[in-house]
């Protein structure tokens, strides 16, 4: 009896062995191409939007690049071919990283006006600006605060942010300049935005893929912006944007756009609303791609950017004279707000 039970257990364990199917791609040029194509096919989250926007068909991409990958003569060539294939997605969050570098799609930024100059910015920051957690800030003429945050790649201390807002407490309004901010930590973006609301506000939705199909998505879950535990700024705020605003910075703009005391001014943002996730190829190259789409509060996809409330470009006249048209416009809006208020 016991022998039978024991034999049954051993048999069951042997039968169960290897039940989890694993895919094995050959570490060859063809194998790596196949693996990359499949990883993107199963995990990328914007096929539907890409098809609507520019007619992308991922199966066509396979047919186009498969013969090219077959004829690669060396790894460097393969890297270029795979990078070109990923470029077809027109997504700055899709990158292939290897010893040959990192493939990037930059057209979301390079095809548009630059709308930012750090040389011109110097004319506004002067020499007495302060820096906290990577934020450069100062009080401009006419008593308007100006804060430039060029990257969210580091963390943001609530205490430091509170101290910055306290240092600008005598100003009438605040210009938050996130131009050329390519993103970083989404938590940093949220920490900054949370300083400008005293209420919990619904700011968007988030989804994720539930399976390998192109349309396998979870139900959109609401994203809320909660008030900061530090100093809350409820005076007028103008957020300056350009095409270089991407990823977590795009998320920041999406959050700020829902706040009543905030105006978005400048150019449409670069987008990049899909939270990226990574994987690897058989040869060890690393692939990053958009996996979790974020939608704004109205349910619109912001992958291709967020339009400003007021579109302003830096004029060539101002550019040549060292003036930042966007900062000037933001100052005017804040001053007009107070003039209207006083008039009432």
């Amino acid at each position: 009896m016991f022998k039978k039970i024991f034999i049954a257990i051993i048999t069951a364990s042997v039968i169960l062995a290897g039940c989890i199917g694993e895919e094995n791609y050959e570490n060859s040029y063809k194998g790596n191409f196949e693996a990359l194509w499949k990883i993107v096919d199963e995990r990328y989250c914007f096929f539907d939007i890409a098809e609507k926007e520019f007619g992308l068909d991922w199966n066509d991409i396979y047919d186009k690049y498969s013969p090219i990958a077959d004829t690669c003569k060396n790894e460097a060539e393969l890297f270029d071919v795979l990078g070109d294939m990923l470029g077809e997605l027109r997504d700055g969050h899709v990158n292939l990283t290897s010893m040959y570098g990192t493939s990037f799609y930059w057209d979301w930024q390079l095809d548009y006006p630059i709308n930012f100059s750090d040389s011109i910015q110097r004319n506004y920051l002067g020499k007495d600006f302060r820096i906290t957690n990577g934020i450069k800030y100062t009080a401009l003429e006419d008593s308007i605060g100006y804060a430039y945050y060029g990257s969210f790649s580091g963390g943001l201390s609530i205490n430091n942010l509170s101290m910055m807002l306290l240092n600008l407490k005598e100003t009438k309004g605040l210009i938050i300049d996130v131009r050329n901010n390519g993103g970083g930590l989404i938590t940093t973006a949220e920490a900054l935005a949370s300083a400008f609301t005293d209420k919990k506000i619904h700011c968007g939705y988030m989804q994720h893929k539930t399976g390998p199909g192109h349309n396998d998505f979870s139900e959109p879950e609401k994203i809320y912006l909660k008030p900061s535990e530090g100093v809350i700024w409820l005076r007028p705020v103008v957020v300056l944007t350009n095409r270089g605003v991407y990823s977590a910075a795009n998320h920041f703009v999406m959050l700020m756009k829902e706040l009543p005391n905030v105006l978005i001014l400048g150019d449409t943002t670069g987008g990049g609303s899909g939270m990226p996730m990574s994987s690897t190829l058989p040869n060890g190259w690393s692939i990053r791609l958009s996996a979790c789409p974020t939608l704004d509060a109205q349910g619109n996809c912001t992958e291709f950017g967020i339009e400003p409330d007021l579109h302003v470009d830096i004029s060539s006249h101002d550019w040549n004279n060292g003036r930042d048209t966007m900062i000037e416009a933001a100052k005017t809006i804040i001053l007009e707000y107070y003039e209207k208020k006083e008039g009432q």
């Binding site: 989250c45 938590t187 994720h208 893929k209 399976g211 390998p212 979870s218 939270m275 996730m277 996996a291």
Partner: peptide
């Protein structure tokens, strides 16, 4: 976690 669910989303 689900197929493409991020830990960030879970943290929300």
């Amino acid at each position: 976690p689900e197929f493409g669910q991020s830990y960030y989303e879970m943290s929300l």
